[in-house]
Design a protein around this nucleic acid. Structure first.
Lengths: 352, 352
DNA sequence: CGAGCCTTCTTTACCGGTAAAGGGGCTTGA
DNA sequence: TCAAGCCCCTTTACCGGTAAAGAAGGCTCG
């Protein structure tokens, strides 16, 4: 790619062509009230003729200090984010809020990219989505001293946080199953650490997880581990949120002697995978197996049976992230409400 | 938001603190081989101590001419794009290609935003997705003279275009239905013009459409309107691609005396809506009604029955868009291959 | 032993704008 | 009638860097 930015002449060229000061040309573009309408018209005409398309954004930014753009930094694969309806909904909210404010939205993928793009980003602020505390990118962004917001993870006491009360939401899921009468319940967790582990895990791993997502599992446990009968729960950890991972997890539960009558999945995508695995094993949902998801992505209403899940306001989360970044009076930490949506994938256990 | 960019001092401040030339500091960051390792180390330490986090991106860009960022300009609501798996897949491809090249990806929504953001965008090039020929944004971008690519629409003979052969793909869909023996076939079209029309349309509207999407309908017609028996086809136009619109379209076809035995939908989202409408009318797919989609979004495999549709390589499209923008040798116009994927939503017509 | 060269920095000239202050001519009002 | 004020435009000083050329000192090598 050739340096085509200055291929079209500059503000000064236009000024020279008209024999006027370059500041006047600048004013023609930025402060129409500072010059006569006639001259302004003449300038605009000349500019068009010379194919000058307006002030160089970089130069302008150098003066004003504003990029009119905010960055969204994505910890993992952006491509994966676009495939994930939950992530997409969040990004949609950010996009919407940006559009309303006339801002651009710059997307960065951390994984596999040089962290220096963070330093090179021409932006006014950063929104971090699911990055680790010790992420280089995060540190670099802090060093830049620009406004920041972190989503779903309380990374820093001085940096605004937006998330949900995962634990309470998860409790509602588990309670729902318990109310239905389930006693053999299994859990499919999302990743609890950065080691890419896949398999059965114990309570210790949940306790020591640095991720906020662990609160979902803790929430399940809050309900299942107390009351008249403590329910021994098997937990499977999936390294990522996808149908395939959900299927793998389910297969492993199905192998057991005492197959669970219900499965709590930490995301809808996992839950959908569980349902598919059940189908291919001839296990009927919800008759033989109840499944609860988390997130309430659009697909939750498309699968058969429609998924019982926790609705979380992803779009609103995105919108609030922008607000938290730009509005001085925005609160430092904010947790959005969630609600359990009971659809068709849960029912009383079939003990026949 | 306060102007926080220069809150941390500049390259010159660091130089002054060390009593050296500012160029040397610049070199410390950009050309380590131009100075002694010891001095570089000292500079970096001082910089860190002074909370100087590296060269100002805007200033750097002003010199180098590169923003290390490309823009994706979206004609309609970006929020809608994130909800649409087809659009998301494309964006995912762009994101992936950008990440590989260490570029940022700037997203713009045209709708409802001031077009001037195009002029203000600190970018090296533009990818336009489904914008109209007379879109102001598009014109402004041309004026800026930066590299451009247009997706799915041949807007300009000199600007690279990436798309698919909609007509041929659509022919394959129609042929599939015909091969199965269908004679009463209806079409649900995507928008053919910018007037927001919803309802039955005639052939004339298809012919006069300025959009490339019209070629899907033309492709259907190619097959249905020829051969031993011309099949009279009813066409419904939906203003946007969504389940709801598909449902509305289907409802209108179901009202007719001679209900179609098959429906060709111009997108999977429409097709899924059609299937849902059928279900709520007690019409079984594919026994009573065959449905063909277009795009092969992930949801096409999640719905029951799984959708017969045309697979198009969205992610690849995104990747190629970036390549077309940056690689000098990329072809000016390129059409990607598609293929008909036959799943469970189509069958022989039930004439019983 | 001195020319030539490399290493390591510095000087100077931009990049393409914006902002604040300045200045000439004309209107206004006491 | 003359100072004050306004309209329009210009001058000047930056914004925070990069790049090319220059200079001082030490090294190599014939």
């Amino acid at each position: 790619m050739k340096p085509s930015l200055n291929a079209r002449g500059t503000l000064r060229d236009v000024a020279k062509a008209l024999g006027i000061s370059h500041t006047t040309v600048s004013n023609a573009f930025n402060r129409p009230d500072q010059l006569s309408p006639e001259l302004r018209e003449k300038i605009m005409t000349t500019a068009r003729a010379m194919k000058y398309s307006g002030p160089n954004p970089a130069a302008r930014m150098l003066n004003t200090g504003y990029a009119q753009t905010i960055a969204v930094v994505w910890a993992e694969s952006l491509r994966g984010a676009f495939e994930d309806q939950a992530a997409s909904a969040f990004l949609g909210g950010v996009a919407e809020a940006c559009a309303e404010r006339g801002l651009g939205m710059l997307l960065f993928q951390v994984q596999g990219t040089s962290p220096s793009i963070i330093q090179a980003a021409v932006v006014d602020g950063f929104i971090f989505y699911s990055v680790a505390k010790d992420d280089v990118t995060f540190k670099l962004a802090i060093e830049r001293g620009l406004p920041m917001v972190v989503i779903d993870r309380k990374l820093h006491s001085r940096i605004p946080y937006i998330g949900i009360d995962n634990r309470a939401a998860a409790r509602a899921c588990a309670q729902h199953l318990r109310d239905l009468g389930h006693e053999r319940i299994a859990i499919v967790s999302l990743k609890l650490n950065f080691d890419g582990y896949r398999g059965f895990i114990d309570e210790q791993r949940v306790k020591s997880s640095p991720l906020d997502l662990a609160n979902r599992i803790k929430g399940y446990q809050d309900v299942l581990g107390k009351g008249r009968s403590k329910i021994p729960v098997r937990i499977w950890e999936s390294p990522s949120s996808s149908k395939e991972e959900g299927r793998i997890a389910a297969e492993n539960f199905f192998l057991e002697d005492d197959r669970p009558t219900a499965i709590l999945a930490a995301s809808d995508r996992l839950a959908i995978g569980v349902i598919e695995a059940a189908r291919s094993h001839g296990i009927q949902v919800p008759r033989d197996l109840s499944v609860v998801g988390f997130d309430d992505i659009p697909a939750a209403q498309v699968v058969a049976p429609q998924l019982t899940t926790v609705h979380q306001p992803f779009t609103e989360k995105g919108r609030l992230a922008v607000s938290a970044l730009l509005d001085e009076k925005a609160p430092l930490r904010r947790e959005l409400p969630t609600r359990l949506v009971i659809r068709q994938s849960t029912d009383k256990p079939n003990l026949g």
